[in-house]
Each structure stands twice: as C-alpha cells, then as structure tokens.
Design a binder for these strands. Structure first.
Length: 439
RNA sequence: CGGGGCGUAGCGCAGCCUGGUAGCGCAUCUGCUUUGGGAGCAGAGGGUCGCAGGUUCAAAUCCUGCCGCCCCGACCA
C-alpha cells in the first residue's frame, strides 16, 4: 500500500474524550472513529488489525475441532422467551420491532439461536460431540460504555458452543477450549492467565476467565508465577486425546482476580517467591452450563439406552474487538503502538525520506516491491513530508519494521532498518536488509 | 442507574464570572525557503458557539428545558 493513496488519518493530539492509552492511541492512529457512545466505525488500519486477530482466533478454534457458522445479528424474541431469558436480560438487550410488529433483538450472545439450530438437526448421541462457533457483532446496551472499544456497546465476539451427551464429555469439550484459548493469546503475543470465575447458579468448577497482562489493565490478578512461565500448550497437542493433565497442570495453580481473591489461600498455596501480582484485562470467558438451555428449549438427543436426554452445553467467548485495545494496552510506548508481528496492520514501513528524488524513489520502490513479493505487507511512505513527521506517524501506528531510504544512504548504497519494539537500528545494503526483515 | 464534569473550526483549548466585531495553537490551502526525528517566513480558507425556548436594544456569555459526550461507583467479552 502506498501511504499517499491510503486512508490513515493520524492525529497529533489525543481527543479529550479518550482517557486510557489504548483508546487515545487508536484514535490518534486513525484506527477507529466514534459514532455514538460505545459504537465505533473501524477505519482501514483498525480493520486490518481486527481481521488479523479474528483470523488467528478462527485458526485456533478450527484446530481445536470447532466448526464455524455465521449467526444473524438480529434474533427473534420468541426464542429468548423459550429459554426464559427475554424478561431476565433487562435494559442491556436492545429490543427492536419489525414492520409486522414482531419483537426482535440485537443479539448480545447466541445460546438460544445455536440451540435452536442444533436441536433441528442433531438427534443422536452418535453425532456428538459438536462445537459450533461464530464470529459476529454483538450488542449490549451497557449502562456505561467506556474506554473506547474496550467496553463498547457494539463489539465483535467469537462465541463457541459445545454440545455433549453428559457432563464428563462436556468437560472434554471444555478442556479443548481452555487450551485453545491459551494458544490464541500466545499467538497474539500476549501473556494470559486463566482464573477461576464465578460459575453462577450451575455451580462446579468449570468456569474460567482469561486475563491478559497489561500494566494499565483494569483488574488486579494474583497468580502463581509458574502459570505465566508455563505459557500455552502449543498447537501440536493431541486434541482428541486426554487433555485433562494439561488443563489440571494450569488450573490447579492459584490464580484469582481481585473480586475472587483469597489472600490467605494465596499465601498458603503459593511460595513467597512465586506470588505474582499484576494488572490485566479480561478478554475471554469459558463456562459449562449443563442443561440450562437444552432443557427449556428441548435440545434432546437419543442416547445409547434409547432414551432422549437434554444435551450438556458450554459456551466460550473471546472479545475480538476488545483484544485490539488489549494488545495496545500490553504493548505500547511514549511514541505509540508497538504491534506484535502477528497482528500488525502492515509488516514493514518503507520510509522514503525524499520522494521526488529519482535515485531515492528507485530504491524505495525496489524495496517495496521485494517486500510485497515476499508477503511482508509493506506500507510505502511516499508522502511529501519531512522526515520527522514521517517517523513520528509510523512509530505512532506501530508497524514492526521500518526500512528507511534516504539520500545519504542511497549514495552509499545502504538503507537503514529499525525494529519498532526495541528501537534497534542497522545500516545495511538493501539485499541484506530485506533478508533481516524476511526473518 | 446514583454522583460529578464537559459541549466554541478537523484536533487541543481560551473567551462566559462582569452581555456589545468569535479568538489562540496544531492541522488544512497557496507561495518561497527547507528536508535523517512532528521545519521557517508570508498569505488564505474554515464557526447556525450542541439544540430549542426565554430575558434584553443586544446572548457564546444570563435563565429554563432538551440532546449528546466523558469521568467515578455498582455490572459485563
């Protein structure tokens, strides 16, 4: 992409409305524009990052055996009356009437819809387990939306729903999601901690929130240090095998957010040198809810004994749009955003310091084409602007590499490359520089 | 939803108390000079002062109502 033809409206100053760093940087980098409280338009740069995160989530869900569907944003109120949630949900649910005066709602989640689909087709225990997921916009009419896309009213969520014959089988589905989530966050360049969450009326221990570490995060986490060091299990585990040991290894270590924290237990269970206190942001939540929806909505399958029984369900959410902000909270400096390579909107910025000078243009063009051919998604900064302004805006939008082409370097047959994350610079002939960037 | 605050040019702000020509910085446009970390000079454009009423000879400014947005608290991916 040539920056002179792109749409990347950066701001030197942060709008006064933005209080937290990710919101400020997203506005300054021209990633989003607020249209109403908690409702945002995604501008080209923001959309690129959003799509990359979405794709990573998709790949890891697929790997863990989940199957993608796309559910509607508008749902029939009647379905929610079946589950009993239509009246319970309250003002957070955006209710709409169509021209036939029929009650609709903008989905805040999709247990009802997916259960309706499941029960229409699946009748036998032999077809289980199943896990269907959906990456779709949701709407929750929050009392107080805030912090940009961190807590918007409209947000992009990946929601997965598992269907199993009994609780033991459901636990296996749960374990797959537990580990898949850790892999997702690891690929996004984040450190994530699974903490036990309030399981609600169902009870049991099958509910975890995933908190990514960021100094500016909203909630406080207390955890065993090994949990972070252990990291994600990686993609190559046997997804059909027994995942219980991998999950237990992690879930048995102490981890709690401030509201669930038990200082006495923390000190009893975690040696002093392993006690970790950090700040973080909740970006995922998984839970097992048993027959909560299958029973009232009659999602039954016939078991080996010939009897019909409600399936045991679980649901698993990742806040995709929230992750955009979360990653920025976890990865930025005074100059702006520092994107992890996996989600960067562009892989490298080719900064032409003197557009209009034939020799410089030629080298910049050559670099740009080579990087494009190599699949590095280059952004060519061919704007007629001063070097300082270019560096400042490229730093701001957080592109992982800069390949700087200026008249001095071109005269000496070299270019400069800079790594955004470390500030490390190297001056090299173009071919060598391209090799470094290609990794 | 309770408490607090703010709406003046694309962004950041002053002006309001004490009514009388709507201003500053950045950004934008033109010209010249500049060009390795957000340049300099000269000139220019851009505003129903959130909206609606009211008071007044006169309202950005005072009064009333409404709308929008932000922050703190209780809840959520």
């Amino acid at each position: 992409m040539r920056l002179s033809r792109y749409f990347m409206p950066t701001l030197r100053e942060a709008p006064a409305d933005a209080q937290i760093v990710s919101h400020q940087l997203m506005l300054r980098a021209g990633m989003i524009r607020q249209e109403a409280a908690g409702i945002y338009a995604w501008l080209p740069l923001g959309l690129k990052v959003l799509k990359k995160i979405e794709q990573i989530v998709r790949e890891e869900m697929d790997r863990a055996g989940a199957i993608e569907v796309l559910l509607p944003t508008l749902q029939l109120a009647d379905l929610w009356r079946e589950s009993g949630r239509y009246d319970d949900y309250g003002d957070e649910m955006l209710r709409i009437k169509d021209r036939h005066d029929r009650d609709l709602l903008y989905g805040p989640t999709a247990e009802e819809v997916i259960t309706e689909i499941f029960r229409a087709y699946v009748k036998s225990y032999k077809d289980l387990p199943k896990n269907l997921y959906n990456i779709q916009w949701k709407f929750r009419d929050e009392r107080r939306p805030r912090f940009g896309v961190m807590r918007g009213r409209e947000f992009l969520m990946k929601d997965a729903y598992s269907f199993d014959i009994d609780e033991a089988a459901a636990r296996k589905s749960y374990n797959r999601m537990f580990l898949a989530y850790l892999n997702i966050y690891a690929r996004l360049g984040l450190k994530a901690i699974p903490v036990k969450a309030d399981p609600g009326p169902i009870g049991g221990d099958l509910s975890h929130e995933f908190i990514i570490l960021a100094d500016t995060g909203e909630s406080e986490v207390f955890a065993h240090g090994d949990l972070v060091e252990m990291g994600a299990p990686g993609p190559d585990i046997d997804w059909d095998g027994d995942l219980e040991p991998l999950v237990t290894q992690r879930a048995s270590l102490y981890a709690a957010s401030d509201e669930m924290h038990d200082a006495a237990r923390f000190e009893a269970e975690v040696p002093a040198d392993k006690r970790m206190t950090a700040r973080g942001i909740e970006v995922g939540h998984i839970f097992y809810f048993g027959e909560k929806y299958s029973k009232p909505m009659k999602a039954l399958v016939t078991g080996p004994d010939g009897k019909d029984a409600p399936i045991h369900g679980g649901s698993y959410g990742v806040g995709v749009s929230r992750l955009v902000a979360g990653i920025i909270e976890a990865s930025h400096d005074e100059a702006g955003i520092i994107w992890p390579d996996a989600v960067a909107p562009f892989g490298v910025a080719v900064v032409n310091l003197r557009p209009g000078t034939a020799e410089v243009d030629a080298v910049a063009e050559q670099a740009y084409k080579a990087l494009e051919a190599a699949g590095k998604e280059p952004l060519l900064d061919d704007r007629d602007d001063r070097p300082g302004a270019k560096f400042a805006s490229i730093d701001l939008v957080g592109i992982p590499w800069q390949l700087i082409v200026g008249p001095k370097g071109v005269a000496d047959g070299v270019v400069e490359i800079k790594r955004r994350a470390t500030g490390e610079r190297q001056t090299l002939p173009l071919e060598a520089a391209l090799k470094v960037i290609a990794g």
